[in-house]
Amino acid sequence: MEPAVDIQDLTKVFKLPSLNREQVVAVKNLSLQVAPGEIYGLIGPNGSGKSTTMKVLLGLISATEGSTAIFGQDSRKVSSRAEVGFLPENPYFYKFLSGQETLHFYGRLGGLSKKEISERSKELLALVDLEHARDRRLSGYSKGMLQRIGLAQALIQRPRLVVLDEPTAGVDPAGSRKIRDLILKLREEEISVILSSHLLEQVQEVCDRVGIIFNGKLCREGPMEELMAIEDQTEILLDKAPAELVEKVTALVAEHEGASLIRSGHPRTTLERLFLEETSGDSPDTRS
């Protein structure tokens, strides 16, 4: 089966508009694949090349070298975009349109008939929980609502792949949770997702696989469990365990030679640690 996303040796160099012809290498020799139905998280600090990679994938900008394809179709072809929905970082849609009209507009761009659009937008407004605001102009939408109508817009022509650039940036925790739930719903419908974020907790919760990108290079990549697993450690997660049981387990560990209990308590993000490990080592520029 054709991969949903296939990026091969992608390099993107930006020429800065200055006299000395300065160049910035945004992405360097990046290769990655996303399988159909997979949720892939691209994480990395600001300016690491996440957005650039996504834009090349969507054919919004051209690659300097290498190739990108969506379900086997070259990204440079207009037809490849029929299979993909995109939610850019902090999107602004036309403020004078209502939620319904926005979906109508993007539905027409996606090549749907009017009938299909009215059915589909009904479904999507329900999905993103904006039925109450369908006739309100977008100028009256909150950030979270904008993000959700953006997601609905991305899904309008039933794409098999959805590209989400920082889908929860600037959205409050409750709104952020709603979006996370929506992404999980996409998995149920076997829609592939490639998302970028620096909200690592969220990535950890929804992604099947993650890639860490830094200074334009893909430093590390793998299935979530693999990346998180620390080979010589084992984690036991207990549910509703009484204090006596924990004491018993601790005692049992102490009896065993060579083994030791590192920590007990409630589970914590480890992805964050991993993230920092990968990105702070060789660069002082790690603000996020």
Binding site: P91, L109, G111
Partner: peptide, 14 residues
């Protein structure tokens, strides 16, 4: 500027 362009060109629109 508003990135509306990205959402439009990300659709199958030449």
């Amino acid at each position: 500027e508003d990135r509306t362009l990205y959402t439009i060109l990300a659709k199958p629109v030449p």
